[in-house]
Computed example of a mutant assay.
Amino acid sequence: MSGDVYKFRDKSGESEKITINLGYVDLGRIDLLVQEGFYSNRSDFIRTAIRSQLAAEGETVKQSIVRQTLELGLRDYSKADLEAIRAAGERLHIKVVGLARIAPDVTPELALATIESITVLGALQASPELKAALAKRIR
């Protein structure tokens, strides 16, 4: 199953919206840089700043991922994956930095029988029924 881990590429359909609060002076400075043509808009500036900071902290992030045994990128869990886990009598501890997706055909019963815990730093995509069933196991 570790072969299902992919490095992220930036795509607008594969992003999460966040909200931040900025002081008026900082916001004005960003607007000035946009006005001067350094960035196409506020979002472009913020994404660039975040990527720059993540690059600066890259080694620390890598070390944390290894230390916490986290998977990096996109991790899909199919119905067949979970059925194989159940047949082997095993339980999953899902730990992902990025995006974890549980297939829409996975039933709450199958998920509860195979997933012991879920830790996702990023986003978890699963049906509302699965999220409700696994709520106490999501950290």
Rank of each mutant, 00 (worst) to 15 (best):
I85P: 00
T60N: 14
A103N: 02
S40W: 03
N41R: 08
E16N: 09
K7W: 03
A56P: 03
E83F: 00
K7T: 00
S15F: 10
I20N: 01
Y77P: 02
H93E: 15
A56T: 10
T69I: 12
I18Q: 08
A87P: 07
A80R: 12
D10V: 12
G13L: 05
D44R: 10
R75K: 10
L32R: 02
L74Y: 13
K95H: 11
A103M: 02
L33K: 03
V96P: 02
I94L: 12
K7P: 00
Y6T: 11
E83N: 01
L99K: 12
D44I: 04
E71T: 12
Q53S: 15
A87V: 05
G89F: 09
K62Y: 11
S43G: 12
S15Y: 09
R86Q: 09
R51G: 13
S64R: 15
A55G: 08
L72S: 10
L70M: 11
A87G: 07
N21Y: 13
D105K: 02
L27E: 11
F45R: 05
I46V: 13
R86C: 00
E16T: 14
G73P: 01
Q68S: 13
G98V: 10
A100P: 01
K62Q: 12
R101H: 09
L99H: 12
K62N: 10
V96K: 01
R42T: 05
I94G: 00
V96M: 05
S12H: 15
H93K: 08
D105G: 01
L33T: 00
L54A: 14
R47I: 05
T69M: 12
R91N: 12
G28Q: 05
E16L: 09
Y24C: 08
V34R: 00
I94C: 07
T60W: 10
A84I: 04
S12P: 01
T60L: 10
G98N: 13
D105P: 00
V61Y: 06
N21L: 12
I18K: 07
L99I: 11
K62W: 06
A100R: 04
R9Y: 04
S15V: 09
G28H: 03
E14S: 15
E71A: 13
S12R: 13
R67L: 05
G37I: 01
